[in-house]
């Protein structure tokens, strides 16, 4: 029983900026539905009184003190950028205001 349509897979792929071939869309729709079906099975478990879990490790409150540390030299990371000019990263213009 498919939960996810091919259109929904296309939408999710768009949100993640993934370009999928028709064959990939077919395959992923099947895979994702298998995963959903599996979770549906898990959901049959009675979890009354069990608190939701957001994190897998039993740990909280890890902080750092507010102390500045040296940053990276600009040349080191601008060199890795797809495009850079002067002191800036350069990106395609996306949205106008």
């Amino acid at each position: 029983m498919p939960r996810l349509s091919i259109e929904e897979v296309e939408h999710v792929a768009w949100l993640a900026r993934l370009r999928l071939s028709e064959a990939e869309k077919q395959r992923l729709t099947g895979d994702l539905n298998t995963i959903l079906a599996h979770f549906e099975r898990l959901q049959q478990l009675d979890t009354t009184g069990v608190e939701g879990t957001s994190h897998a490790v039993p740990m909280s409150n890890r902080y750092r003190d507010d102390e500045p540390r040296p940053s990276l030299p600009r040349e080191e990371f601008l060199r890795e950028a797809p495009d850079a000019r002067d002191a800036f990263f350069v990106v395609p213009r996306i949205v106008e205001t």
Binding site: R64, E67, P68, R69, S71, R74, L78, D86, F88, F89
Partner: peptide, 17 residues
């Protein structure tokens, strides 16, 4: 991260991984 928050620094001078 530990990068400074100082306003008005030269572009991309307060960045780290």
């Amino acid at each position: 991260c530990g990068c400074s928050t100082q306003f008005g620094a030269p572009p991309n001078s307060q960045c780290c991984p």
